[in-house]
Simulated assay, not measured.
Amino acid sequence: MKDVLRFRRTILLILLIALIISSLLFLPFKQALVFEYQNTGKILAYLPLKKQDTFQIKYTHSIHLTNVIESYSITKENEIKQYELMYEDFAIGMPANAAEGEVFEEKDGKYYIKNMKRIFPSFDLRVGKVRANHTIIYHKKEFPLSKTIEPGTWIRIHVKKVNLLEIMRGVNILES
């Protein structure tokens, strides 16, 4: 009888340990800006975020070869809101003016569209191969995407709570 009770306790303990390990591996707990391979859900890289954090994407425009900086914030609903755009040339692909409710400014030879309220659940980007040099700016530090994601790769960017397994599979951009 004691052997049966000991066996049941051992099995129960093993199941409890397995449940704890599974919970640690699979339960999402950390908010991150996630860079997925295409739309597969496979995380290539991530940027750990705090609630309602901000970040920027800087790149060199392919035609007029000047910097463009797009500024984003994270909403309470974990969506991405573009709130500002900075560029240096009105060439092809750049806006000539602000949309309704937005503010257009020219300062020190640069053009700004401010007060933008463009909200996205996600957006897609192809990491530049030649000269775009897509770079994430986070807390005034720059992280070129080409250091963690192969140039030419189509990625989907969105906010997601990630679990330990996803963290172990992806690359933390802050550590690259």
Score class of each variant (00 low, 15 high):
residue 1 M to G: 11
residue 54 T to Y: 14
residue 166 E to K: 08
residue 120 F to D: 01
residue 85 L to F: 11
residue 81 K to M: 14
residue 94 M to R: 11
residue 102 E to P: 06
residue 153 T to V: 02
residue 81 K to I: 04
residue 174 L to C: 06
residue 81 K to R: 15
residue 173 I to W: 00
residue 138 Y to D: 05
residue 102 E to D: 11
residue 118 R to D: 12
residue 63 I to Q: 06
residue 148 T to M: 15
residue 115 N to F: 10
residue 61 H to L: 07
residue 130 V to H: 11
residue 143 F to P: 05
residue 159 V to Q: 01
residue 117 K to D: 15
residue 60 T to F: 07
residue 26 F to M: 09
residue 170 G to Q: 07
residue 20 I to G: 06
residue 123 F to E: 04
residue 118 R to M: 14
residue 118 R to F: 08
residue 146 S to Y: 13
residue 46 Y to D: 04
residue 147 K to V: 03
residue 144 P to S: 09
residue 94 M to D: 09
residue 87 Y to L: 13
residue 109 G to M: 07
residue 127 V to C: 07
residue 26 F to P: 04
residue 128 G to P: 04
residue 66 T to M: 14
residue 144 P to E: 08
residue 176 S to W: 10
residue 108 D to Y: 11
residue 41 G to A: 01
residue 25 L to M: 12
residue 86 M to L: 14
residue 85 L to H: 06
residue 47 L to R: 05
residue 70 E to D: 03
residue 161 K to V: 02
residue 81 K to P: 00
residue 53 D to S: 13
residue 87 Y to W: 15
residue 86 M to W: 06
residue 136 I to Q: 01
residue 56 Q to K: 13
residue 89 D to Q: 13
residue 48 P to L: 13
residue 121 P to C: 02
residue 160 K to C: 01
residue 9 R to C: 04
residue 102 E to F: 09
residue 124 D to P: 00
residue 154 W to Q: 08
residue 127 V to S: 04
residue 99 A to V: 08
residue 27 L to W: 12
residue 119 I to C: 10
residue 97 N to D: 15
residue 31 Q to T: 14
residue 155 I to L: 00
residue 82 Q to E: 11
residue 169 R to E: 10
residue 162 V to P: 01
residue 13 L to Y: 09
residue 90 F to T: 03
residue 162 V to T: 10
residue 86 M to A: 12
residue 74 I to N: 02
residue 168 M to Q: 07
residue 85 L to S: 04
residue 33 L to W: 03
